[in-house]
Write a protein that binds this DNA or RNA. Structure first.
Length: 421
DNA sequence: TCTGGGGTCCTAGGACCC
DNA sequence: TCTGGGGTCCTAGGACCC
C-alpha cells in the first residue's frame, strides 16, 4: 500500500475560510482566529500572515497590530469547523477509494493506477470543493506522502498554478534544493538545528546522506523522511485507525484555587472523553488525571502533577470513569495553589470485542442503555441538554470566548436566512 | 494581566528476572 | 579493588504534527 503517487488536499487558512463562508464581509480583510480561551492565534488569513503575526502568537503581543490594521479577531468555533471539515472530506473521498483524513483540514489520497492527467483531475477536485462548500483548498501531488507535502507547499506559494501542483521526478531535485531543512514535514526547529550543524541545510542535502547514518545519529523517523524525499515511499496511507489515547483538557478562564470547581471541570472533561471513547467503539483500562498551575508565572508556587488510575475492568462507562477521575484528583490536588488547567487522558484503549470479562464484574445492561440514551440526547439536543451533577452548574472554569461567531451549520437558531426578492 | 488543545512515535533508563 | 550479562517491561520525557 505504500505505492504512490499520493495527493495531499489541504484547506487554505481553514478556520478563517470557514468564517468567511458565512460572513463574506471578511473577504480580503485581515482575519485571525484565536485558540480556546482567546489565548493565541491558531489561524491567520494571508493578510495577517503578511503582517508578521506568527502561528501561536499570544493575542496580548499583537494587540497593537489589531488596532493599527483593523484586524478582525474571532474566538474559535469548533462545531462550525468540524462540520465544514466533514463536508470537505466527503467530497474529496469521492475522488479515491483510498484516503487518510490526516487532520481537520488535510486529507491524503492514494492515486495508484490513476492514468489520467493528474493536474487536471486535481483542478476539478479543487473546483468542486469550492463550489459545494465555499472552502478554497490546495492540492499537492508527489511520489510519496512527504513529497506530496512539498508539492502542496509549492501549490500554495505559486498561485499561478491555480492552487494545484504535481511534483514530477524531473523537477524533484530542483524543488528540494530550494526547500530549507526546517520546512520539511517531520523536521522541526530542534532537529533542523542539529542537521544544520552537520552541514545539512536543505531538503536536498538530507537525501544525499546515507539513511543508515541518519538512523544511527537520529532515529528511524528521520531516516524514513530522508528516503521519502528521495522518492521511496515508506509511510503508507493509514485508513481509519482508532485512536490510542483520548485526551480532554482546557485552561480555565481564571485561575482556580478551590477544589470543588476544579472537580467540576474535570468531571465535564471526563464525561466528554467517555463520549468520544464510545463513539470510536473502544474501552479504556487506565486513565491519567493531571492538574497544572501557570508555568509562565515563575513567581507563583508551581504544581504540576499527574496520576494514573488503573480501572478494575476495561470500560466505557462514564460513571465508573467519573469515580476514578475524582479519586485521582483527590490524590494530587494541593490547596493554596492557583491552578490554570486540568485534564484527563484515557490510556490503554482496546476494541470492545477484545475487552476482557472480569469474573467479579458483570456488564450492566441498564448502565449501557443509560449511556446510549445520554449519547443520543447529546446528538439531538446538544451537549448542554443533559449532564452529570458532578459537572456542576456554575462552570466557574469556563474559558473566555469573547469574539465567537454563530453556529451556522449545527444549530437551528443560527441557520443563515435567505430572502428572495 | 493576557501565552491552546489533542494527537503520534521514539528513546533512555530503571526495575526486575533468570 | 573486585562486585555478570542479557532480556523484557514500563515510564518519563522529548521530539514532531496540525
Amino acid at each position: 500500500m505504500a505505492d504512490g503517487p499520493f495527493a495531499l488536499v489541504d484547506c487554505n487558512n481553514f478556520y478563517v475560510s470557514c468564517e468567511r463562508v458565512f460572513n463574506p464581509a471578511l473577504q480580503h480583510r485581515p482575519v485571525v482566529v484565536l485558540s480556546n480561551n482567546d489565548g493565541c492565534a491558531v489561524a491567520r488569513s494571508n493578510e495577517v500572515k503578511r503582517l508578521g503575526i506568527k502561528m501561536g502568537a499570544p493575542l496580548f503581543e499583537f494587540r497593537d497590530l489589531v488596532a493599527q490594521h483593523n484586524i478582525e479577531v474571532l474566538s474559535s468555533n469548533y462545531s462550525l469547523y468540524g462540520d465544514m471539515s466533514n463536508r470537505v472530506m466527503q467530497i474529496v473521498q469521492g475522488y479515491s477509494p483510498l484516503t487518510e483524513v490526516y487532520s481537520i483540514d488535510e486529507i491524503f489520497l492514494n492515486l495508484k493506477g490513476m492514468p489520467f492527467d493528474l493536474e487536471a483531475w486535481a483542478l476539478k477536485l479543487k473546483k468542486q470543493v469550492l463550489d459545494w462548500t465555499g472552502i478554497p483548498v490546495s492540492v499537492g501531488i508527489g511520489a510519496t506522502k512527504t513529497l506530496a507535502k512539498v508539492a502542496n507547499r509549492m501549490a500554495k506559494k505559486n498561485l499561478f498554478h491555480g492552487g494545484v501542483f504535481e511534483l514530477k521526478e524531473d523537477r524533484r531535485i530542483e524543488a528540494l534544493k530550494a526547500l530549507s531543512i526546517e520546512e520539511v514535514w517531520g523536521i522541526g526547529s530542534r532537529w533542523g538545528k542539529s542537521l544544520r550543524s552537520l552541514g545539512i541545510q536543505t531538503a536536498y542535502d538530507l537525501t544525499e546522506q546515507d539513511y543508515r547514518h541518519i538512523q544511527k545519529q537520529f532515529n528511524v523517523v528521520l531516516a524514513r523522511t530522508a528516503l521519502e524525499l528521495g522518492g521511496l515511499s515508506c509511510m503508507p496511507l493509514e485508513v481509519m485507525v482508532p485512536r490510542k489515547q483520548i485526551r480532554v483538557s482546557r485552561s480555565f478562564g481564571e485561575r482556580i484555587t478551590k477544589y470543588e470547581p476544579i472537580r467540576e471541570a474535570l468531571s465535564s472533561f471526563t464525561a466528554r472523553a467517555a463520549e468520544k471513547l464510545r463513539a470510536q467503539g473502544s474501552l479504556t483500562q487506565a486513565i491519567l488525571v493531571f492538574i497544572q498551575t501557570n508555568r509562565f508565572n515563575e513567581k507563583e508556587p508551581q504544581h504540576h502533577q499527574s496520576i494514573v488510575m488503573q480501572l478494575p475492568v476495561a470500560t466505557d462507562d462514564t460513571i465508573m470513569l467519573l469515580k476514578a477521575a475524582r479519586k485521582g484528583l483527590e490524590k494530587i490536588y494541593k490547596p493554596n495553589h492557583r491552578y490554570k488547567k486540568t485534564g484527563i487522558i484515557l490510556l490503554d484503549l482496546t476494541r470492545e470485542a477484545n475487552g476482557q470479562n472480569d469474573l467479579f464484574f458483570e456488564a450492566n445492561p441498564k448502565r449501557q442503555a443509560l449511556m446510549e440514551a445520554l449519547d443520543q440526547c447529546h446528538e439531538w439536543f446538544g451537549r448542554k441538554s443533559l449532564h452529570f451533577a458532578s459537572e456542576g452548574v456554575k462552570c466557574a472554569w469556563q474559558g473566555r470566548r469573547g469574539y465567537v461567531s454563530a453556529h451556522q451549520t449545527t444549530s437551528w437558531e443560527n441557520l443563515p436566512k435567505v430572502y428572495a426578492k
